[in-house]
């Protein structure tokens, strides 16, 4: 299955992936209109320390702890992609505690959010990958 991978060697810590991620879920056509005066809550985050940086988003684990931990069945694995049903999510944050990558995050509305590989966005393909200026974030099939 194709997943989002990050080649840390080429990450510039420009944080553009975060903005393209936040923009993707708005459904707007224009980023300025969508994100002006908005505190973004991206599903991908750039971690940086001492000159090393890389973007982290959901790994779509084969054996996902978040799905195991979910007490309402809001998190499910559909064709390898871990999806969140925000109607079922009660905001208990068990998944946030379970995820070893910190890839699940809270939203303003109570339900959690996570990367769904932009399946539900208008673009349809991961926008962090499209927006990365240095080919750092890739969407590809790798040997399992």
């Amino acid at each position: 299955m194709k997943r989002v991978y990050v080649n840390e060697k080429w990450c510039l810590a420009c944080h553009l992936c975060e903005y393209y991620c936040a923009f993707a879920s708005t459904g707007e056509k224009d980023m300025a209109r969508a994100l002006k005066n908005v505190k973004i809550r991206p599903r991908i985050r750039v971690e940086e320390l001492g000159g090393i940086s890389f973007a982290v988003s959901c790994r779509h684990c084969d054996d996902p702890l978040c799905v195991k931990g979910c007490i309402t069945g809001a998190l499910t694995r559909v064709d390898g992609v871990i999806m969140i049903d925000s109607d079922r999510c009660i905001g208990c944050y068990t998944c946030i505690l379970c995820c070893p990558f910190g890839a699940v995050s809270p939203t303003e509305h109570g339900a959690v959010q996570k990367c769904e590989l932009c399946i539900r966005t208008t673009a349809g393909t991961p926008q962090c990958v499209q927006g990365c200026p240095n080919g750092t974030i890739v969407f590809e099939e790798r040997g399992e």
Binding site: C14, H15, L16, E18, Y19, M31, A32, L35, K36, V38
Partner: peptide
């Protein structure tokens, strides 16, 4: 009007 303070 277009700057979203992304700081890139």
């Amino acid at each position: 009007d277009r700057c979203i303070n992304c700081r890139v």
